[in-house]
Design a protein around this nucleic acid. Structure first.
Lengths: 344, 344
DNA sequence: ATGAAAGCGCTAACAA
DNA sequence: TTGTTAGCGCTTTCAT
């Protein structure tokens, strides 16, 4: 019962199909890739032969001959972060049915790993590449700029796109959220952040923008760490924050996990979320609306980002021009009970 | 500034490296793949030439010549379900640094899509394949059995492994959880389940096993749906359950999302989780321990599953035998406040 | 619209 | 230990 490497049975090739359809392999190849170049009669015969023989193209041979693989490389910093999972969902939904394969690379927030993965991916002569963020290392950036395939940077916006871009302004989003806290009457808003990657730093910037604009001093109300985010960490950071800045009356969290953790911790400590402590997350995961009290958050359009990234690549691969090289998907503040001072 | 398909510059090949190192391309190939076959002197010269020229192997050419790609195909039913995200994390951690690429296929819980994806993957002559569950369609099963690469089924256990297997018994796990509820004094336990896939069905089986063993009648205390799971759905299913079976005093949830939703809904309705309503999730996501009250769950070893699946494949690819063809990773009940009747 | 010839970059098989 | 030869299955280029 072992799966010994038995002599591989002859693979069905274009030749086989051609023989069966009484034509040449190149014509079969054309019939499959650009049907309009082959007469209808022949196309029908070929189609029949293909199904009868169960022909499956060999992507390796195709890649070798055409110097172009059907791989679309996707570099993301984490596979467990559900923010990226949503992007992937949109991406896989959109690529399904297309003659391309998404290949995932996990950079684990490490520029070194990203450099290495970009090299590996480029070695595959990919049809396109999707990379996360706009803060590539100089090495990565040089590699990508020299690459001869379309590239989309996702999840953020910046001035100097390598090629194409789809994202939103983290800074603006965080500023809007902070303005909301202030507008709701919280006078001492704080910021807590885990895994301070470049996008998180820009959120902190936005928080500070709003404080400055409102003439509010920041005091000691910013607590950040490079530790990966988690719900449990929300409780830890809350404790630290309240210890060093007891005046805090509202918190903007770097992401929704932390917000959830803060909420549970507040429940434990008998702090009323809303009236006593305003709370706002970031990303608007599904749980935010379902929580009790429901938690205010900033919605980001993650599935759409994945979808659009693929669509932009496909457009370029097919020689069409995408609608725009840089797409701003914006964000949407979702005000909920956690920022209502008058909650029952 | 458009990325026009500029004339591709000559790619650095084995030939180029060979010329530079004053040897033949096959020797370079060997030096790279099985260094022990090449003399140390030559190996050094080759290594130097490789770095100087920046040689990157062409996986397509390699796959074509060797009839074996470096792709490890991974079929999972959902990319957003964090249960699978954890498996992927373990898998990517383990594959990192190995000369293999994981390629993800998203079956979306649809056997038809799974069949198609298996065909696509096998067309790549993969080094190995990882598939989710033990309930493949007859078509899929036949394809996999005929495949000439090692295969691991993950996330479940069954009698007839296609090749190798790593998982745990969903039925036993759910039975254990239900026994816990009963042992804690809950006399009318219920089951709610979303997206009733085969593994969820086995969990329901386990729930029923425990009820039968304890001589408890099930009544109308089972509510299931094929709707995808979500936190919000937990509230919906709770409402439905309490409407049709008001005697319910404890709930085993198909997964942790639902449990969280039930907890929020209970909070909203003023039901005390623990004393009035026992609550148990499934999988033990990080949030379960951080919640307030903390939520009892059944821990499953998802990262380990990904890790082990890759290790088993690697063993077989390298001709070694894996420790065992079927690995049971078990589960661990994590009793918490949500199943304490005496909570403050 | 169809086909012949050549070759993509690598490795298996055999030879020295 | 090293090298030679002959493809892998497809697509490009150039004819017809």
């Amino acid at each position: 019962m072992t799966k010994a490497p038995e002599k591989a049975p002859h693979r069905v090739t274009l030749e086989d199909v051609a023989r069966r359809a009484q034509t040449s392999s190149i014509t079969v190849s054309r019939a499959l890739r650009r049907p309009e170049m082959v007469s209808e009669k022949l196309r029908a015969r070929i189609a029949e032969a293909v199904t009868e023989l169960g022909y499956v193209p060999d992507p390796a041979a195709s890649a070798l001959a055409s110097r172009r693989s059907n791989v679309i490389g996707v570099l993301i910093p984490s596979v467990t972060n559900s923010v990226f999972a949503d992007v992937l969902a949109g991406l896989y939904d959109t690529i399904a049915g297309q003659p391309f394969n998404a290949q995932l690379g996990n950079t684990r927030y490490a520029p070194g790993i990203e450099d290495a993965l970009i090299r590996v991916f480029l070695g595959q002569r990919p049809a396109g590449l999707i990379v996360t963020g706009v803060d590539q290392s100089p090495v990565s950036r040089a590699l990508l700029e020299a690459a001869d395939c379309p590239i989309v940077q996702i999840m953020d916006l910046g001035n100097a796109p390598i090629d194409m871009m789809v994202g939103f302004s983290h800074r603006d989003a965080a500023r809007t959220a902070t303005e909301h806290l202030i507008a709701r009457g919280y006078s001492c808003p704080a910021f807590i952040g885990a895994r301070m990657d470049p996008r998180s730093e820009r959120r902190l910037q936005g928080f500070r923008d709003a404080l400055a604009a409102a003439g509010i001093t920041e005091g000691a109300r910013v607590v950040t760490t490079t530790t990966p985010s988690s719900v449990a960490l929300g409780e830890t950071l809350l404790a630290q924050l309240l210890a060093q800045a007891p005046e805090t009356d509202a918190i903007l969290c770097n992401n929704d996990d932390l917000a959830l953790g803060v909420q549970f911790a507040a429940l434990r400590r008998g702090i009323a979320i809303g009236p006593e402590l305003g709370l706002c997350g970031f990303n608007d995961l599904e749980v935010m609306a379902a929580a009790h009290p429901s938690i205010t958050s900033v919605r980001t359009f993650r599935r759409e980002m994945g979808k659009l990234a693929i669509e932009m690549l496909l457009a370029r691969i097919e020689g069409r021009d995408p609608d725009a090289k840089v797409r701003d998907l914006g964000y949407a503040l979702m005000p909920r009970d956690s920022t209502r001072r008058d909650r029952a």
